[in-house]
Simulated assay, not measured.
Amino acid sequence: MIALSSFMEEARSRVATVEGKGQPFGIKAASVFFGFAFIWAGVGLWLVPGLEMTSYVMLAKMGLSILLVTAGVGMTQIATDKPRKELHFDARNRQLLVLESLPRQRMQVVQTINYEEIFRVDVSDTLLEVSGENGGVLVALDLDGEHARLDAVAQLRSQAIFPC
Rank of each mutant, 00 (worst) to 15 (best):
residue 157 R to G: 14
residue 122 D to S: 13
residue 105 Q to D: 03
residue 133 E to G: 06
residue 56 Y to P: 12
residue 72 G to Q: 01
residue 39 I to W: 01
residue 63 G to E: 06
residue 141 L to F: 00
residue 134 N to Q: 12
residue 110 V to Q: 06
residue 68 L to M: 14
residue 154 A to H: 07
residue 133 E to R: 03
residue 139 V to E: 15
residue 45 L to T: 02
residue 58 M to F: 15
residue 123 V to I: 09
residue 44 G to D: 01
residue 92 R to Y: 02
residue 106 R to T: 12
residue 101 S to P: 00
residue 76 T to P: 04
residue 39 I to Q: 00
residue 65 S to I: 13
residue 64 L to W: 06
residue 40 W to V: 13
residue 79 A to T: 03
residue 60 A to K: 10
residue 53 M to W: 07
residue 83 P to K: 13
residue 111 Q to R: 01
residue 95 Q to K: 07
residue 105 Q to M: 10
residue 123 V to H: 11
residue 153 V to R: 09
residue 83 P to G: 05
residue 147 H to N: 13
residue 139 V to L: 11
residue 128 L to C: 05
residue 135 G to S: 13
residue 122 D to C: 04
residue 91 A to G: 07
residue 137 V to H: 05
residue 67 L to T: 15
residue 61 K to P: 11
residue 99 L to S: 05
residue 137 V to S: 15
residue 38 F to Q: 01
residue 77 Q to C: 14
residue 73 V to H: 04
residue 49 P to K: 15
residue 97 L to M: 04
residue 134 N to A: 05
residue 154 A to M: 13
residue 133 E to W: 08
residue 88 H to C: 11
residue 82 K to S: 00
residue 97 L to H: 01
residue 73 V to K: 05
residue 64 L to P: 00
residue 128 L to R: 00
residue 99 L to Y: 08
residue 87 L to H: 04
residue 139 V to N: 11
residue 49 P to W: 09
residue 103 P to I: 09
residue 110 V to I: 11
residue 137 V to D: 10
residue 137 V to Y: 04
residue 123 V to N: 02
residue 83 P to D: 07
residue 154 A to R: 10
residue 118 I to Y: 01
residue 139 V to P: 12
residue 56 Y to N: 04
residue 61 K to W: 02
residue 53 M to V: 12
residue 110 V to Y: 03
residue 54 T to A: 02
residue 91 A to N: 10
residue 57 V to T: 09
residue 106 R to C: 13
residue 134 N to M: 01
residue 76 T to F: 10
residue 75 M to D: 05
residue 130 V to A: 14
residue 78 I to T: 06
residue 114 N to C: 10
residue 157 R to Q: 15
